[in-house]
């Protein structure tokens, strides 16, 4: 190929590329204006974990140690004691090290009473890594702050302005809930 033909080919190629770019120039922008406009993340999205307390302020957690057992990075530490009144156990300590958490939600899936849940908050960057070592008070606090949360057993739940915990309407629920409620199959901890 002569030099002129080659140059002509290159010019044509650049033209074709510009043509492809030109087609998209009038498309709406997809950039997210993040700090000014927060994106809505789906309820199942695994970001922050929280412990949920019942409406009367008691722990939902029954200290069964399932979450501690399934955690792959072993960041959950639970200490429990026998319940002085009645049967079962109560929590003495519940630590979760978010710095080493893999955000896999194995713990959320294993929990039999939906005490540990995923919440929609996602901005948890801090300057000091020790601030990511959460104890029970912090996890309870995140749970109190949360407006909606998700667990495979109960689906999405919402906290109403007057402090009651309610099941979210069906349009907010992710898939698979109908079967879960009907039978409970597939919901067991894997």
């Amino acid at each position: 190929m002569s030099l002129f033909a080659e140059v002509w080919e290159a010019v044509k190629a650049v033209g074709a590329g510009l043509g492809a770019v030109n087609k998209r120039i009038s498309e709406p922008a997809v950039t997210e204006f993040y700090p000014y406009k927060k994106p809505e993340i789906p309820p199942v999205s695994v970001q922050f974990l929280a412990l949920i307390q019942n409406e009367d302020g008691t722990d939902r957690c029954v200290a069964c140690l399932q979450c501690e057992r399934v955690c792959p990075s072993q960041v959950i530490t639970i200490e429990r004691k026998r319940n002085p009144e009645g049967k079962g156990f109560v929590l003495e300590r519940f630590d979760l090290d978010f710095a080493n958490c893999m955000h896999c939600a194995n713990c959320v899936e294993a929990c039999p009473v939906s005490a540990i849940v995923t919440v929609g908050a996602f901005e948890h960057a801090v300057y000091d890594i020790n601030l990511l070592k959460a104890d029970k008070a912090m996890l309870d606090h995140i749970g109190h702050e949360a407006k909606t949360w998700y667990s495979p057993k109960f689906g999405v739940e919402i906290r109403t302005p007057d402090g009651r915990i309610e099941k979210a309407p069906p349009e907010m629920q992710p898939g698979g809930l109908a079967e879960l409620l009907a039978e409970g199959e597939g919901g067991e901890a894997s």
């Binding site: 199942v44 893999m102 939600a105 698979g176 809930l177 597939g186 894997s190």
Partner: peptide, 22 residues
């Protein structure tokens, strides 16, 4: 993310199928 809960490392498949319905 909508189905599996994470974008790049979803941990979604499991023994016998998938973790939750789509």
């Amino acid at each position: 993310e909508k189905t599996a809960g994470a974008r790049m490392l979803p941990n979604y498949f499991t023994f016998g199928g998938v973790r939750r319905d789509v």
